[in-house]
């Protein structure tokens, strides 16, 4: 006999349908397909198949239209079938959001899943993706999500996403120019305090923040930034490479 496990327990029927199991886990009632971030699934009941996005797209052509981001294709899987799928992200808070004929841009590493009625596109801001349409999506946050309205300046690391407002511009504290010449040189070498760069939001909309600045490793971010370097000519690309080498030799920040 075993007792004392007062902790919540579920079976395939009693697991919540499209709702949180607890603040750190969410149960998707799957009937058809969902896009799920790789590794987010922690358990499932029923007949569920997980296939890579492009692998699934070869069977169902609509997938490519919904997931127009080859950059992230190998970070995502399509869960298909019937059942309940429980997703979580390293014990972080998991929240579901309903988007109604709208658009929302979110940090890719925090997006755990979205219904196939939504369309995913890569944002111009590196590391972020935009969801367009109507449907449900799941995102994790390090601590509860804070909603704020523009005008607002956010720390890039704490920024989770934004909706309905124009993409942010980068803001630098105005005294950067007043700083000494040496500080300017250090800035060119990639040495920054880390807080003088912020994202500046204007217009109408909502900005989502998480209450911690803990960085999540996003493998695709490197590829995104790398693809942006295509804007550079060969000589500037070489100069950038030298600066990056100098930064890594300084121990990196």
């Amino acid at each position: 006999m075993i007792d004392g496990l007062g902790t919540a327990s579920y079976d395939a029927q009693s697991l919540p349908a499209d709702d949180n199991v607890n603040p750190y886990a969410f149960s998707i009632a799957l009937a058809g397909e969902w896009f799920v971030s790789k590794g987010a699934m922690i358990a499932y009941y029923g007949n569920v198949d997980f296939a890579g996005v492009s692998q699934y797209a070869s069977r169902a052509s609509w997938v490519a239209a919904r997931f127009s981001s080859p950059m992230y294709a190998d970070e995502w899987v399509v869960a298909s079938g019937q059942g309940k799928v429980v997703v979580a992200d390293r014990g972080h808070d998991v929240n579901s959001y309903d988007l109604e004929d709208g658009n929302l841009t979110i940090k890719q590493a925090n997006l755990l899943g979205f219904a196939p009625t939504l369309e995913l596109k890569q944002s111009i801001v590196p590391g972020f993706v935009t969801l367009i349409g109507t449907g449900k999506f799941l995102a994790s946050s390090n601590g509860p999500v804070i909603f704020v309205e523009p005008p607002f300046r956010a720390d890039p690391e704490a920024l989770l996403g934004w909706s309905d407002c124009p993409s942010p511009s980068q803001h630098y504290d105005h005294h950067w120019m007043a700083q000494s010449f040496m500080a300017g040189v250090q800035g060119m070498l990639g040495r920054e305090s880390g807080e003088e760069r912020q994202y500046d939001f204007t217009g109408a909309g909502t900005i989502l923040l998480q209450s911690s600045e803990k960085l999540v490793v996003d493998a695709a971010l490197l590829r995104t930034v790398e693809s942006h370097t295509n804007l550079l000519d060969a000589q500037s690309a070489g100069a950038l490479g030298q600066r990056l080498i100098a930064r890594s030799q300084q121990g990196g920040r």
Partner: peptide
């Protein structure tokens, strides 16, 4: 456990 346990029957 890292976060509350979830029991699955």
């Amino acid at each position: 456990s890292d976060g509350p346990l979830i029991g699955l029957d």
